[in-house]
Simulated scan of single mutants.
Amino acid sequence: MAKGDKQLVLKPLDDRVVLEPTEAEEKTAGGILLPDTAKQKPQQGKVIAVGPGKLTDKGTRTVLAVKVGDTVLFGKYSGSDVEVNGKEYKIVRESEILGKLN
């Protein structure tokens, strides 16, 4: 790893997923610029890391439906916001992910 590179030191557990939320829209569909206070919380993000899967009663792990690099939609108030190395991330359970974008 080069001197300037920062590697994510956050590893999710079980069926949790680490997301990098996309920036809130700065303009409306009609082209009106929005001030910071009027911007909606982002509900879309890129998957940065995934956990090993939820442990079943039989001792096996379930396979997650998302992988690193996927762009996903999540609920407005789902997950937990965390800051690592000065960067904002969101940790959600796989069940809180509403869908994947192609």
Rank of each mutant, 00 (worst) to 15 (best):
K58Q: 14
E26T: 10
R93I: 01
R61K: 14
D14W: 07
D36I: 12
Q43I: 13
E26A: 04
A65Q: 14
E20V: 01
P42K: 03
D70W: 04
T71S: 09
I91D: 05
T37R: 07
E88I: 10
E20I: 02
E88Q: 14
T71Y: 04
A65I: 01
A2H: 14
L8T: 11
K58I: 00
Q44F: 03
L33N: 08
R61A: 03
G59L: 09
K39I: 00
Q44V: 13
E25C: 07
V9H: 07
G30Y: 06
Q43H: 11
L13I: 07
I48K: 15
A29R: 14
K46D: 04
K3F: 13
E94H: 10
D70P: 02
K6A: 05
V50D: 09
Q43N: 13
L55D: 08
E88M: 13
V63M: 03
L73V: 08
K41I: 07
E88K: 15
Q40I: 04
L98K: 12
K54I: 00
D36K: 15
V66F: 11
L34N: 10
G51V: 08
E88W: 00
S80M: 09
E88C: 06
G75F: 10
D70C: 07
V92T: 02
T60F: 12
T28K: 11
E25M: 06
G30F: 00
A24R: 01
K90W: 00
K3S: 14
I91Q: 01
G59F: 02
V92W: 00
Y89F: 13
T22S: 11
V9S: 14
K67G: 11
G69I: 05
Q7A: 12
S80C: 04
V82I: 15
V47N: 04
L19Q: 05
T60I: 06
A65R: 11
D81K: 12
L33F: 11
V50P: 02
V17W: 03
V50I: 13
G75W: 07
S78D: 15
G4M: 13
G30M: 08
V82E: 12
N85Y: 14
D5F: 11
V63H: 00
A2F: 11
G45Q: 09
P12Q: 04
E20R: 12
K39N: 02
T22K: 12
K3G: 07
V63Q: 12
V9I: 10
N102F: 01
G69A: 08
V82D: 04
I91W: 08
S80W: 03
L10N: 06
S95N: 10
Q40E: 15
K6V: 12
G99Q: 04
G53F: 06
V47P: 08
A24G: 10
E94C: 06
P52F: 09
V66M: 02
L8A: 08
E96K: 05
L55V: 10
